[in-house]
Design a protein around this nucleic acid. Structure first.
Lengths: 358, 358
DNA sequence: TTGAAAGCGCTAACAG
DNA sequence: CTGTTAGCGCTTTCAA
């Protein structure tokens, strides 16, 4: 409070104890709200602390107790509204339990992710929420788990690991997307995602426990139902950067026999795809149909309004946080928030050019 | 690495030292990369550390050195793409210097902000980047500064405090916005912002060192140039929540003599306003003109494409981080990134209904 | 209810 | 170059 404390170090428990004329232990108990303290001592200590502008040193506290009050969150792309909103859910939930959030952005880069986990572990965070950029490479998460650090996975699961994973089941919605497009006569359906995969996608490629697997799988199922064959070369993965995304669009739109419909794996992809479509002077849905995952406000305001699959991103964030807190021994509401995705039909899907429905 | 370490505590410097057969100090030096260590000792220690799966305890390290490797970032609304992007800039920049980011979202609530700053200070972050929700109430920032904690302000400044502040100068762009609208015949120009202010806005209201002050000021100046008078009741502040935003829109659009143009202070506001306009069946720009601050991808994809004022948000984040790092004694590029806002004219501004220009 | 003393894991003098 | 010895600020036995 007072202005004079210039280069002065922060007041410590010892300072407060001295000022209050009690032992260090007793002052600590009063300040930390534990143990047994008489009314008298309490009030003296508290006012002494106020006087000195005492602020408990969390670092020291965490060190001695071994309990940290921060949790680590690792995401691939914080710019993406999906993660922004999820982060908000996480943040809201953990704060109620007294934790703060240490955030690391990885640019969907595995090396960066490994480093981030390492770093957070060194910072001794109480636990981790990770949206892994790969659902197959998970040695670093495994290692974290080995060292008894709680980790909760977000969006993508890791095969073979019994880690809590928060993700919505897209099987049903994805099937609906496939049917919607097929019913409209589309056969050349493109799919674009930023999921990192080594090999180009083909039938049988293991997409891991990612939502992308669900979503691509749904379309495959719809094709099977319709007795048609899906040209797997229309599935473009690894579109994490703007350049890669542009390349994927080019491949889909500029080839002979171009895609007549494109499914966008998230809103960032949708934004890019729409831009590319516009640049080419194509009209939606007359020339090309579009479906996007994630229902953010802007999707309803573009012309035409986008047909999307909505998912409760904020609640997913909260759930991830709750799962973590639960593991950490906190009491949190037992019932799980319903995490359902559903198709929202608007106006960006039309009959395929040249199809009987057209 | 090995699976057996179940409930085992993490290896410490002492463990490594013992395993390597050297003193604790020597092991610490080898592991910490400071002091003088012989090749021999180094390699023995390193391999012992590897063997034991040693991970330095940052908490302990920070405690003894007094240097923390995390910085605190306090924003009002992480969902807002503006902050998402800025956060990315901050994160990218500080990581290069070896810091992690502790993020707190405040919901544009002053009490929450005060608590957040307090909390971060207790966590002994090396410094703070704050996008203050009020540019007049700043006792908590003042106090942080008093306790020799470096704080850098983002977007909004605080009058009377010599704190580093990163913000772009909107004077010119705002004037252009005013002229653009006035030239198109608009006189009933609405302005909506989430800035927290006690009183309703009127001439002479102190908006502090906020961009809102610049932006409203620019419009005022344009009015003065044109020898016209601006109805201050068209300036709606405190539109932080969806409800408040809806109410502001209602007041602007449903009154007798409604606004013929609306300027949106950020992209979240723009999204809300566009939604309200659509709900009312109004057309842009025939019935109402719209200008928004922040040029995000979606603004170009709506119909009509939005006339916006763009600002280099990512670079602003980087600059904020650099300012902080500089204060913390790090070497960062001396030249400042140019932080300029500029008007991007697209198609959401048209002649005011009933104006000579119409 | 109180206090003295021992440590958490690390770094920082200070000698050798 | 190496080892010994103190702490950092807090919590936590253990006795009183």
């Amino acid at each position: 409070m007072t202005k004079r404390e210039q280069g002065v170090r922060e007041a410590t428990v010892a300072d407060v104890a001295r000022a209050a004329g009690v032992s260090k232990a007793q002052a600590a108990r009063a300040l930390g709200g534990y143990g047994a303290v008489s009314e008298q001592v309490l009030s003296v200590v508290v006012s002494a602390a106020e006087e000195l502008g005492y602020r408990p040193n969390q670092l020291a506290r965490s060190m001695t107790t071994g309990r940290s009050n921060s949790i680590g969150v690792v995401v691939g792309d914080i710019e993406n509204a999906h993660f922004g909103l999820a982060l908000r859910g996480i943040s809201d939930e953990v704060r109620e339990a007294g934790y703060t959030v240490v955030l690391v952005n990885t640019d969907e880069d595995l090396t960066a992710e490994v480093g981030a986990v390492q770093e957070l572990l060194q910072q001794r965070v109480a636990g981790l929420i990770v949206a892994p950029c790969s659902s197959t490479e998970a040695a670093h998460l495994e290692s974290a788990h080995d060292h008894n650090r709680t980790v909760v996975l977000f969006d993508r699961g890791v095969r073979g690991w019994a880690l809590d994973t928060v993700r919505v089941d897209f099987a049903e919605a994805a099937l609906q997307v496939g049917r919607l497009l097929l019913d409209a006569g589309h056969r050349r359906i493109g799919y674009i995602s930023s999921l990192r995969v080594e090999e180009p996608y083909e039938q049988g490629t293991d997409l891991g426990l990612s939502p992308v697997a669900d979503r691509v799988g749904g379309i495959e199922r719809a094709f099977r139902e319709a007795g048609a064959e899906w040209d797997r070369s229309l599935v473009k993965l690894n579109a994490a950067s703007d350049d890669a995304l542009a390349a994927a669009c080019a491949d889909l739109l500029d080839r002979p026999g171009p895609a007549t419909a494109v499914v966008c794996s998230d809103s960032r992809i949708a934004l890019g795809v729409l831009g590319q479509i516009k640049r080419r002077g194509l009209r939606v849905p007359q020339d090309i149909s579009v479906v996007a995952y994630d229902d953010f406000p802007w999707t309803e305001l573009v012309e035409p309004p986008l047909t999307v699959v909505s998912q409760p991103v904020y609640d997913m964030g909260r759930e991830a946080a709750r799962a973590l807190l639960r593991r950490l021994g906190h009491r949190v509401p037992a019932e799980q928030l319903p995490l359902r995705a559903h198709l929202v039909e608007r106006a960006s899907v039309g009959p395929a050019a040249g199809s009987p429905a057209a």
